[in-house]
Design a protein around this nucleic acid. Structure first.
Length: 518
DNA sequence: GACCTGTGC
DNA sequence: ACCTCGCACAGGTCG
């Protein structure tokens, strides 16, 4: 059943469970990643058409929830007996379905070996500098007080900037600023709307700043210290293997995959992530442009293949092609626009979306996209091929045959069908990158274990891995980690890994860049 | 709990 | 007139 929690339960008592080979939740997830995150109750109902009690029925829920030691033994035994019967019936059916879908190898050789790796990462946790974060919190508090007062002065009374309703009333009624997009419940006040109003009134900038700082304080600076485990003095996230429809991992309680990085205050948050032992270091290894490399591999587009083979700046090259200028004549703005297009392609971009993102009108955006596809013809063919595959067989798949069924791909409703096509286009690319990262995690874990190194993998953020590392293992890992990651799967273009080392997750120094043979 | 908003890749 | 780029998780407000 949920073998990660079984593994962790035994591990907490000093036992390392081996031979984990059939987690039903993981099996069900591979069989259909798209529905909802699997549970035994749902599987029993969907597959066996039988209703079983959930944990809430045994233990209660919310505040009144009991631990299972507080419930009568016979009740607990009956509850788990029922579940075990269901598991014994489900397992062979799910396994034969995996065989039938050609997903048995993905299950046996990738997802199941990954499971204990994730469990060990959760157990290891990550160390947070609490006194430092408390200082950041005090700074933020002062800034927020100041901004709140300044906004109140303009509003002739206090308003709650975190309330979209109050904010909309203030901006669009009191100040009479032009309201833009509407949401279900009124005028939108999100950042894109506010950015457009920035020059119309000085208070708008203050609101944007308030929003940003309030977000950081509430979501990270104040939340993280409260989640530090009292025994280990570390934060132990959950890495979820059965949630994301593309095959990516997710992180929750807390989510350590959306720690800020872009803004100054965001970077201050990142500085709070430190090694747990004095003298140790953090090592970060990230795949450079992995999704675009996957796209180059899948499309076999000659220009993309050449760009990556030559180790070019991919966005600059795209700009040179699309704007028809020499590569050394590309302006920063042209490169920026090309970058938006490159990423947009991965997501099934429309002319409307592109126009919005780079601030040109939709007609120019249409021409821009058309020019892109004239240069990168195989990309267009690939995208059309993916959509056709989705239409004809109802699913798309990654390099390792991970499937995603595509709802609405044949819908007569243009909006629904368009959304389905974007999903179909994005999944093989995002999901293949996830396949590669998972392979690398398994191999790296195996290496660290075989060589009895003390370095511990602690975080995975889609294209990045973070390790906590004793200094004396540094030289060895600088050699091994990027080489292994870059060679774990062979594409038609090199995989490139950037390696950084530092005393925290923000202030890191690049130590090596490795590109594997294509 | 729904909705809005915003952080990451 | 419609459309507004994929995948996640979480905090705050409001009813």
């Amino acid at each position: 059943m949920n073998q990660k929690s079984d593994y962790l339960a035994l591990r907490a008592r000093g036992l390392r469970l081996q031979g984990l080979d059939c987690d039903l939740l993981v099996a069900a997830y591979l069989l259909n990643s798209g529905i909802r995150t699997p549970s035994l109750e749902a599987l029993a109902s969907d597959i066996l058409h039988r209703a079983i009690e959930g944990k809430e029925a045994l233990l209660g829920s919310g505040k009144a929830a009991q631990s299972c030691t507080q419930v009568e033994v016979a009740r607990v035994a009956a509850f788990y007996g029922d579940r075990m019967r269901i598991i014994m019936e489900l397992a062979p059916r799910l396994l034969s379905d995996l065989e039938r879908l050609q997903n048995a190898a993905l299950f046996r050789d990738l997802e199941m070996p990954l499971l204990p790796v994730l469990a060990e990462m959760e157990l290891a946790g990550v160390s947070i500098d609490i006194p430092y974060l408390q200082q950041v919190s005090r700074d933020l508090y002062e800034q927020l007080q100041r901004l709140d007062q300044e906004i109140a002065d303009v509003a002739h009374g206090p308003i709650n900037v975190n309330s979209p309703v109050q904010l909309a009333r203030f901006l669009f009624e009191d100040l009479n600023l032009p309201g833009g997009r509407k949401t279900k419940s009124g005028y939108s006040t999100d950042a894109t709307v506010l950015e457009a109003l920035r020059d119309l009134h000085p208070v708008v900038g203050k609101i944007l700043e308030y929003r940003q700082l309030s977000k950081l304080k509430g979501t990270y600076v104040d939340a993280l210290p409260a989640l530090v485990d009292l025994q280990t003095h570390r934060v132990h996230t959950s890495f979820n293997q059965t949630v994301a429809a593309t095959g990516r991992l997710s992180s929750s309680d807390p989510n350590l995959q959306n720690i800020p990085i872009r803004t100054d205050y965001g970077q201050r948050v990142r500085r709070a992530f430190v090694p747990g032992r004095a003298g140790d270091l953090l090592l970060s290894a990230d795949y450079s442009q992995i999704e675009l490399r996957v796209m180059a591999h899948m499309t076999e587009d000659p220009l993309l293949l050449e760009s990556f083979a030559q180790g070019e700046d991919i966005h600059a090259r795209t700009a040179a092609e699309v704007f028809n200028v020499a590569r050394d004549q590309v302006t920063p703005n042209q490169r920026r626009m090309a970058k938006v297009v490159n990423f947009g392609i991965l997501y099934g971009l429309s002319d409307f979306g592109l126009a919005r993102d780079i601030g040109m009108n939709p007609e120019n955006a249409r021409v821009f996209i058309e020019t892109y596809f004239r240069k990168y013809g195989r990309v267009r063919e690939f995208l059309e091929g993916i959509k056709m595959m989705a239409r004809e067989q109802g699913y798309v798949e990654t390099l390792l045959q991970r499937r995603r069924y595509i709802q609405d791909i044949r819908s007569p409703n243009r909006q629904l069908r368009g959304a389905a096509e974007r999903v179909a286009v994005n999944m093989p690319i995002q999901g293949s990158a996830a396949d590669i990262m998972k392979l690398a995690m398994i191999e790296l874990d195996r290496y660290l274990r075989e060589h009895e190194l003390r370095t511990q993998m602690i975080l995975t953020v889609h294209d990045e891995l973070v390790f906590e590392m004793p200094v004396d293992e540094r030289d060895r890992l600088v050699e091994v980690v990027p080489d292994l990651m870059a060679s774990v799967y062979s594409l038609r273009v090199p995989l490139q890994v950037d390696l950084k080392i530092g005393q925290n997750w923000q202030d890191m120094e690049r130590v090596r860049v490795v590109a594997a043979q294509a």
